[in-house]
């Protein structure tokens, strides 16, 4: 006890991704400021996809992992609030809410007793927009179009709010699905749009900005509790620096992705934001069903810039 060691981290992204770089630098900071802690990152899902990484952290086989919001929603329905469209205005608003212990403190410790998992905080995954084979201005432009979404009621409702038809499709089949027309459109952040090469088959990106994506950084609760107070303090400081660096890296990666996709023939265009705002914001009333969810939603909205 009290003696640190390199922390095994399961990551679903590659070494070039902002999440990898930020976690790698987290390790460097830990090596300097703590007694023996460091990070040991396993990228590219080599230890399993996010649903399994979650179990590995719970079990202690892996110390930390990066998991998406819907994964945590499967453990505690309160997490649904931050998966809703338009709950965050932008990345800056999102990071402010997520790292405000007044708002998320209870939520982030809610998995400790049952799952032995503590949520440390979040890395933004940027604002998500729709891309297809023609520019989109209003929800009516997406009428009748099949939009690939992840497999959940919320995502299907979101596709309806955008004006189209939500179609769950395995992510690995999306490129060829867009190419052949099994689906007409998809939605993601600019970084994935570029690195997954989807601009090759769906060259029109329309800034619906319907959702600001979020990955959570989780850690095994026993491990966190075993740190000495000094190490814990240094760890928290290093993590804060890491998520701030990540936000910076994300902005740069987004800019590079836009430039890269544009050079590859993609066109980025604005939409009639007001036309999308109403149906997207209305989703909160459908998907918020408990008082605790409502309280989180209200707190998040109250933190938005006036």
């Amino acid at each position: 006890d009290g003696e640190g060691r390199p922390l095994r981290i399961a990551l679903n992204q590659s070494e070039a991704h902002p999440s990898y770089i930020a976690l790698d630098h987290l390790g460097e900071a830990l090596a300097e400021t703590t007694e023996g802690y460091d990070t040991d990152i396993y990228p590219n899902e080599t230890l399993g996809a996010q649903a399994e990484a979650l179990q590995l952290v719970s079990d202690g086989s892996v110390d930390m992992a990066v998991v998406s919001g819907p994964q945590l929603e499967n453990l505690n329905p309160d997490f649904v609030v931050f998966n809703l469209p338009r709950v965050f205005d932008d990345v800056e608003h999102q990071m402010r809410v997520i790292h405000d212990p007044e708002i998320t403190g209870d939520l982030f410790s809610s998995l400790e007793e049952r799952n032995n998992i503590t949520v440390l905080g979040g890395f933004t995954q940027g604002a998500r927009s729709v891309y297809t084979d023609e520019p989109i201005e209003t929800p009516a432009d997406l009428a009748g179009k099949q939009i690939r979404v992840q497999e959940s009621d919320l995502q299907l409702a979101m596709a309806r709010a955008l004006g189209g038809i939500g179609t769950p499709l395995a992510y690995g089949e999306l490129y060829t699905g867009l190419q052949s027309g099994v689906v007409d459109a998809a939605e993601n952040n600019e970084v994935s749009y570029f690195t997954q090469r989807h601009f090759e088959v769906a060259p029109y990106w329309s800034y619906t900005n319907h959702l600001v994506g979020l990955d959570y950084i989780i850690i095994n609760s026993d491990l966190l509790a075993s740190m000495t107070p000094a190490d814990r303090e240094a760890f928290d400081a290093a993590f804060t620096a890491a998520h701030e660096e990540h936000t910076q890296l994300w902005a740069e990666a987004t800019q590079e992705a836009i430039e890269g996709a544009t050079a590859g023939g993609a066109t980025f265009s604005e939409v009639d934001d007001a036309a999308f705002a109403e149906p997207l914001e209305a989703m909160a009333d459908t998907f918020i069903t408990t008082d605790s969810q409502r309280a989180l939603y209200d707190a998040a909205r109250a933190a938005a810039q006036p």
């Binding site: 649903a51 979650l54 719970s58 079990d59 819907p70 453990l75 497999e151």
Partner: peptide, 19 residues
């Protein structure tokens, strides 16, 4: 068996069962 109990409360995304 341990895997099942470890994921007993982890809901599936689209079906009304747990992992």
């Amino acid at each position: 068996g341990r895997a099942a109990s470890n994921a007993w409360l982890q809901n599936l995304s689209a079906l009304p069962f747990t992992l």
